[in-house]
Design a protein around this nucleic acid. Structure first.
Lengths: 211, 211
DNA sequence: GGAGAACCTGACCGTTTGGTCAAGACTTTG
DNA sequence: CAAAGTCTTGACCAAACGGTCAGGTTCTCC
């Protein structure tokens, strides 16, 4: 069915179709959740017959799993800045900025992730228990080191991580509510910059980090 | 069908059945979203035949709307402390505490709300545009008054509201993820207190409010 | 150019869904 | 106790769902 080595032309077609399906699936899953999404809708948005979608992804669950794990990769990569920084102002500040940028560039991804977790992570529980646990403990250790060096206030790094995730992802997950409260207008670039600066400022000052 | 004035005994039965259905519905909608929830499942959890559920709530959408608007009421009432306070330390601090308590006592409610908003608020858009807009502007005015009085740092009250909502609701919406990261153990009372204190401390200090 | 693999698709299927219906049981009221 | 309203229920239905299948088309490689 799926061959490891394909000629160029077919490989392009495959990746194009797959990519179109994945894009459509991300949007539909984000809007309707796993249960509310239909393969019909995904196929239509991808511009393909439903049967063709099943050619690339045998089941709805397989497609969903692929969408969610792609998102997971993006999330993890957003934190590279964390380790390259020597001061908490740089490290935490850059992480906040990176997460805020992701909330604007990939809001659907954030919503799919949020829905999956809210429903008990039935599909990606194994990722949570392994990769996310390890990743989180690594970042917590970095924060603890800054605390031990007296570079920021002593707080439990765990609850700081949650605060950063919550505040930044909120702008993706609750974008519709935010837009409604903004006179039914999407946030402008200026508003976005102000929101980003406000989040950054309050968090850093709240941690006793000079800015 | 539904009578305004019923004898006591029947009124009790009605309210009991309705309440059981609403409880079950909140849990099922929280777990599966609107699309993934089934009337069968809701009926089973309420301990009633499916037909009986339809006797009280004609359609799935009507039941859902009732669940969501009940939640909306709870949310709004959580902010009474806001206006009764004279200092931002009291007002904002008490609001954070109240929202954190709600995240622990009514996590399903928060998850249903989050799912509804994430999917574009197809059912309760009118609430958002009227009640929530008014309510939010009222609280923003209170915050602005504290800023003008020099009692806290000058930040845009709007983005502060979002931060408070995000950080507190995160503990309900992402409870499953938090539990997984906590060695698959629900947060203990002590951990909860620490999380609450951390959120409160970081936000208040971040706003330049002495604590 | 022909064999074989990869890709595409319309028709179809069993299951589950939200919702209906008609008939029976219980409660209240005269 | 009987009539009227309220509540409960098993059987049923059309529609929509995820998924299958067999047959056709396109591409690559020898």
């Amino acid at each position: 069915m799926t061959q490891a080595f394909l000629p160029n032309r077919q490989q392009n077609k495959r990746s194009e179709s797959e990519a179109a399906i994945l894009r459509a699936a991300e949007a539909v899953f984000a809007e309707a959740g796993f249960g509310g999404a239909t393969m019909r809708e995904i196929a239509e948005r991808a511009g393909l017959p439903k049967t063709n979608v099943h050619y690339y992804f045998a089941t709805k669950e397989e497609l969903y799993r692929r969408v969610v794990s792609d998102i997971f990769e993006i999330w993890l990569q957003a934190a590279s800045s964390f380790d390259e920084a020597s001061t908490p102002a740089e490290g935490i500040g850059a992480y906040i900025d990176a997460k805020m940028d992701l909330s604007r560039s990939h809001p659907d991804a954030s919503r799919v992730w949020a829905t999956e977790v809210m429903h008990g992570a039935p599909i990606i529980q194994d990722y949570l228990e392994t990769t996310l646990v390890e990743w989180t403990e690594g970042r917590m250790a970095s924060i603890q080191a800054w605390i031990d060096a007296g570079q920021m206030d002593p707080i439990n790094p765990r609850y700081l991580m949650y605060m950063i995730w919550a505040t930044t992802q909120h702008y993706a997950d609750f974008a519709h509510q935010i837009e409604t409260l903004n006179r039914n207008t999407p946030m402008s670039d200026a508003q976005w910059d102000e929101a980003k600066a406000t989040v950054r400022r309050i968090l850093l000052r709240g941690l006793g980090i000079a800015i």
